[in-house]
Design a protein around this nucleic acid. Structure first.
Length: 618
DNA sequence: GTAGGGTTAG
């Protein structure tokens, strides 16, 4: 009897309904697509790397100063004072070193990231009336930008004009980058437009890319694409960096097929893609689990004699680790070492994330030690991954201990670190501690982001404090945080769970009023809420509304509604929906299947139920 | 020949 019923299921719902292994990313065969990726990498014929020139070789035609400087820029200025020693030596030289020599000193300091020292050397140069030129100024403006003082950069621009120098395209590019890095993209765009309008600069691919990149980073990839077209129209041929920037942004937006079109386009135009172009695309494909495309891209790289670099390997290690394939990730790391690409903190953190996702905390912890033994310092992100692993296993005390440890090691916990622990405290229902911890993180000056808000709202709802969640929701905008669709979804779910149907209904209506689009999760939450309350009519109306708003129902939508029908003894409706679901290519999930299983065994004498039993038992 | 600005990984 049971076998017969199971057979009925398999014909009706296709196979592996109960255990959709492949969709969980768990595969038991050995010829998975990602294995092919690894096999391909192993066969990659491009393991020859250009030999580096001997870094210890110092040409003997350099001046005494230049030798000193070259030495310093290689070993680095241990203390900023070293640079001042060199500077003072230069001041005593006869004849006085040239403007190029002094500018080289600044450039060497920039290379060591001693931006503030460079600025103070420059101001000394000015006070001694030493010669400077537009290049010197551009370097110092760049330092100001790195020190988050783009305003000083503009003060220097004024000084440039005052002294009769002419800012060039590099000067302006530096300033634009400074503005963008300080979230002043609109100002940057305005300045750029004015520079073009007034013919102040002859724009090149770099300055265009600065703006293109700014548009990409502010979520306007389509505008970046338009600028790519515009620069070409203006006679400035886009290069591989311009294309790679847009391709990367498209890949991040999951528009990988558009990214592939751009790749084809650049090849048509004779612009050779490089390892960055391919790595960006591979990253995009990894996010969508499009393993066949990854294989194809790696083949293309091989054909074009482009070797994967550390970034490429890190992307692949991360993709495998996140897919739970830690053995493959480990193997990729071995492979990258053999290919001369040294794994770094990003590589090992990705692997650690894989261990944590599988709950293999011992391995994750052991990896932390391995990293240290290999001279790689775990950073704040590494610790956050580990902390997240412990929180997900409900071992919040260990997580808090790790937070203390990282602080002792001089690492600054980020908002992600704190949010992770907060989530752990909520999950373990340690409400008082969550509250205290939240206050503490605010006192630390941590700036909340939208993810923290989601954690707080979900934590409050989860613990039956929907009222507090709603209060927080109403205060969000005063903190400069705009609720997104996830926030609405969390609250709708919470309100229904608390029986607050009217409030949930109102909030759902607010979504459109706020100019947001309900996601499939929003609709599913509404359907689930209405079904729970026995409001099947309203639940069904939501399904129709989805179709009106071009939001395709998914497996969860149908399963929720079908279970709602069964629970409310609407067997006919459930039956129709099952047919519709199967017609859309979806299957019953485990919970619906077991519910139906029970119904088929039921001895209840409902005519609709009998019809249902007849339908599923041949 | 000589000094400055651009794209990728958690």
């Amino acid at each position: 009897m049971k076998t017969m019923m199971r057979r009925a299921f398999t014909t009706c719902f296709n196979s592996n309904t109960l255990l959709p292994f492949s969709r969980l990313g768990i595969t038991t065969t050995t010829t998975t697509p990602c294995c092919r990726v690894i096999a391909l990498l192993r066969l990659h014929s491009l393991s020859q790397y250009p030999t580096c020139p001997n870094p210890n070789h110092i040409p003997n035609h350099l001046s005494e100063f230049q030798q000193l400087l070259l030495e310093k820029s290689r070993v680095g200025f241990d203390k900023p004072d070293d640079a001042l020693v060199v500077f003072n030596k230069m001041l005593r030289m006869k004849p006085l070193p040239s403007v190029i020599d002094f500018t080289q000193l600044l450039a060497a300091l920039v290379k060591m990231k001693h931006y503030s020292v460079a600025v103070s050397v420059f101001s000394k140069m000015c006070s001694f009336s030493l010669p400077v030129n537009i290049i010197t100024y551009s370097i110092v403006i760049n330092c100001c930008c790195h020190l988050k003082r783009v305003d000083y950069g503009f003060t220097l621009l004024a000084a440039i004009f005052k002294r009769g120098f002419v800012p060039d395209v590099v000067t302006y590019t530096t300033l634009l980058r400074g503005l963008i890095s300080q979230d002043k993209f609109l100002e940057a765009e305005l300045l750029f437009k004015n520079l073009l309008k007034q013919n102040q600069v002859e724009p090149n691919a770099v300055i265009f890319n600065t703006i293109i990149n700014g548009q990409c980073k502010t979520g306007n990839t389509s505008q970046a694409m338009m600028l790519l077209r515009y620069m070409e129209k203006k006679g400035c041929m886009p290069n591989v960096v311009n294309y790679s920037t847009v391709i990367d942004s498209l890949s991040k937006d999951r528009l990988v097929d558009d990214a592939l079109s751009l790749l084809a386009e650049m090849s048509d135009k004779g612009i050779q893609p490089d390892v960055v172009t391919y790595s960006s695309l591979i990253h995009g494909m990894c996010n969508l689990n499009r393993w066949d495309d990854i294989t194809q891209l790696l083949k293309d790289m091989d054909r074009h004699k482009i070797s994967p670099d550390k970034h490429t390997y890190n992307i692949l290690v991360d993709a495998h680790a996140r897919d739970g394939k830690v053995r493959d990730a480990e193997y990729l790391i071995e492979l990258m070492i053999r290919r001369g690409q040294n794994p770094d903190v990003v590589t090992y953190s990705a692997l650690m994330d894989g261990y944590c996702l599988r709950g293999e905390l011992d391995k994750a912890l052991a990896l932390l030690k391995t990293m240290r033994n290999n001279g790689i310092s775990p950073d704040a992100h590494t610790y956050t991954i580990l902390i997240n692993g412990y929180c997900k296993k409900m071992k919040v005390d260990t997580a808090i201990h790790l937070l203390e440890e990282m602080t002792l090691k001089g690492l600054t916990p980020t908002v992600e670190t704190y949010s992770t622990i907060l989530d752990g405290l909520f999950r373990t229902r340690r409400l008082d501690e969550a509250h205290r911890f939240y206050k503490k993180m605010l006192n630390q000056g941590v700036k909340l982001n939208i993810v923290t808000c989601r954690i707080l709202l979900r934590g409050l709802c989860w613990n039956g404090l929907v009222g507090e969640a709603m209060t927080m929701f109403h205060n969000m905008e005063s903190c400069g945080l705009v609720p997104d669709i996830c926030v609405y979804n969390i609250l709708i779910h919470g309100l229904f769970k608390d029986g607050k149907v009217d409030e949930a209904r109102n909030l759902f209506q607010d979504i459109l009023l706020k100019g947001l689009r309900p996601s499939v999760i929003s609709y599913n939450s509404m359907i689930q809420g209405f079904c729970q309350e026995g409001l099947l009519d309203e639940a069904y109306k939501i399904l129709l509304e989805m179709e009106e708003h071009n939001c395709l129902p998914d497996e969860v939508t149908y399963n929720t509604l079908i279970r709602g029908c069964f629970k409310n003894k609407m067997y006919d409706g459930g039956c129709v929906l099952i047919d519709e679901m199967v017609a859309h290519g979806f299957k019953a999930d485990a919970s619906t299947t077991s519910m139906l299983f029970d119904l088929l065994q039921s001895k209840e004498q409902d005519p609709a139920l009998l019809a249902l039993q007849k339908k599923f038992m041949p």
